[in-house]
Simulated scan of single mutants.
Amino acid sequence: MSQEIAVVGSPEFTTGFRLAGVRKFANVPDEQKDEQLDEAVEETFADEDVGIVVMHDEDLSHLSRDVRSDVETSVEPVLVTLGGGAGSGGLRDQIKRAIGIDLMEED
């Protein structure tokens, strides 16, 4: 089972995670996202040590259609997005996809 958390995004986005101890990251400056983000995401998702990939929600719009589809449906590693307007329903769906059960399910 994959153990590492990786973060992909702008240097400003990844810095906080790096300070918190995340060792795997890919910095893609804002002005280069359209050219370099697909490659950075594909490399991160191909890393067998990575179990969770964290990205900013707005960065998904910079991914090509194929890469975006692949990462949004990936089970391992699982994509967790932060920011934007995803709300608790988005995070709830991500957790459910990652562990296979809905922890908030009502009887």
Rank of each mutant, 00 (worst) to 15 (best):
1 M>C: 05
3 Q>A: 10
4 E>M: 14
5 I>H: 08
5 I>V: 15
5 I>E: 09
7 V>S: 04
9 G>D: 03
10 S>Y: 15
11 P>Y: 03
16 G>T: 02
16 G>D: 07
17 F>I: 06
17 F>M: 07
18 R>W: 07
20 A>R: 12
21 G>R: 05
23 R>K: 15
24 K>D: 08
25 F>W: 10
26 A>H: 13
26 A>V: 05
27 N>Y: 04
28 V>S: 04
30 D>Q: 11
33 K>P: 07
36 Q>E: 14
37 L>D: 01
37 L>P: 03
39 E>R: 01
39 E>H: 09
41 V>K: 01
44 T>Y: 12
44 T>E: 06
48 E>K: 13
51 G>F: 02
52 I>M: 07
52 I>H: 06
54 V>H: 00
56 H>E: 10
60 L>C: 10
60 L>G: 10
62 H>Q: 05
63 L>M: 07
63 L>R: 06
63 L>Y: 07
63 L>K: 03
65 R>E: 10
67 V>N: 03
68 R>E: 15
68 R>K: 10
68 R>T: 02
70 D>S: 14
71 V>F: 00
72 E>A: 05
72 E>Q: 10
74 S>H: 11
77 P>T: 11
78 V>S: 12
79 L>V: 00
80 V>I: 15
80 V>L: 13
80 V>H: 01
81 T>V: 14
83 G>S: 15
86 A>F: 11
87 G>D: 07
87 G>R: 07
89 G>R: 11
92 R>W: 02
93 D>Y: 05
97 R>W: 02
102 D>W: 01
103 L>H: 07
107 D>M: 07
